[in-house]
């Protein structure tokens, strides 16, 4: 297969192009996604190519956006709706909890094939209303698939699967990953939902990391290798449903686990992954599962303060060393 190098942003953009080309029922809307091509330029060129019936800017109206995507999905379209920053997902949340995910279960036989695209993550000096990672809120709700890819390869292939899937899917991007580069095939490919990806093999410790924390964990693993510590990095890619089979196989091999999640600690997805591992892999564990998360603190603006909030390579290394001492 011939490969090419693209950014995470381009990878997502390509997936959108290809799926809109493939299926005329796919439509895309949200704030500033049309003419301007998105504040992060992820939807660049789509309106020009597919026209303003299928790709359009909306008023600032997150609740109505989520509700309308839901209704349009019920009535025969395959909408992709963008909530620009996850910090204000709360405005759309009622629709998501009480309509989008209610309908397929309660109104038997009706499907809601939509994709909610949004992005979170800190490191942009965006202060606390433009940097939060609130995937745990969506993760908590039954009936929605939640994807958090960390590489261009996964982002493109997974988004294509998400658009073709008949369930509601939340596709959560990370703003600091948009410019990162990776290899993808020249031609058509997909990445299945619900399948984890081992990003690095190792034998001493397993790190289960989400989104940008995969990148940080790989950096940590590389440095630890020089100290003679072999780290395996597992990226769930889809966090719900979680591919426990892949995670359990890794734990069986290493017997030690760190879960890394850039989010407020209490009630983070990391807490739930930790619980699932200890329930299913208790006999394989040589010590407690450790979590590397952000603290339960609002995200401050000052570059000098933001660093205390952000989890990253150094905190991950410390956790690995601590885990080996137990």
């Amino acid at each position: 297969m011939t490969m090419k190098k693209v950014t995470y942003r381009q990878a997502i953009n390509e997936a959108l192009f290809e799926e809109m080309e493939r299926d005329p029922k796919v439509v895309l809307f949200g704030e500033d996604v049309g003419t301007y091509g998105g504040v992060f330029k992820v939807t660049d060129g789509l309106k020009k190519k597919f026209g303003s019936d299928r790709v359009f800017d909306t008023p600032i109206a997150e609740a109505a956006l989520m509700g309308a995507a839901t209704g349009a999905a019920v009535a025969g379209l395959r909408p992709i709706v963008e909530i620009m920053f996850m910090d204000w997902i709360g405005i759309a949340m009622d629709q998501l909890v009480n309509q989008t995910t209610m309908i397929p279960y309660i109104w038997e036989g009706i499907k809601v094939p939509l994709v909610l695209r949004t992005q979170g993550g800190s490191g942009s000096k965006g202060s606390c209303q433009h940097t939060k990672s609130l995937e745990a809120w969506i993760y908590h709700v039954p009936g929605i698939v939640v994807a958090m890819p960390s590489t261009p390869y996964d982002a493109k292939g997974l988004l294509k699967s998400a658009i073709r899937n008949d369930n509601p899917v939340a596709f959560i991007e990370h703003k600091m990953l948009y410019p990162t580069e990776g290899e993808i095939p020249e031609g058509e490919y997909t990445v299945p939902l619900g399948k984890a990806s081992v990003k690095r093999e190792g034998k001493d410790v397993t790190i289960v990391a989400l989104s940008k924390m995969v990148v940080e964990s790989l950096k940590a693993a590389k440095e630890l290798e020089e100290e003679g510590i072999s780290v395996e990095v597992v990226d769930p890619v889809t966090i719900k449903p979680l591919d426990m089979e892949t995670i359990a196989a890794s734990v069986k091999k290493t017997n030690r686990v760190i879960v890394v999640n850039e989010a407020f600690r209490t009630g983070a997805v990391a807490s739930d992954i930790t619980a699932q591992i200890q329930e299913q892999c208790f006999d394989d564990l040589d010590g407690p599962i450790l979590r590397v998360t952000a603290p339960d603190v609002q995200i401050p603006y000052s570059p000098a303060l933001e660093q205390f909030w952000l989890p990253g390579k150094d905190k991950i290394k410390q956790a690995v060393l601590a885990s080996l001492k137990r």
Binding site: S127, H130, Q298, P300, Y301, S302, L305
Partner: peptide, 12 residues
């Protein structure tokens, strides 16, 4: 020395 000790930044 910022009015919110640097926690707010320009929007808040």
């Amino acid at each position: 020395t910022g009015m919110n000790q640097g926690k707010a930044g320009h929007m808040l």
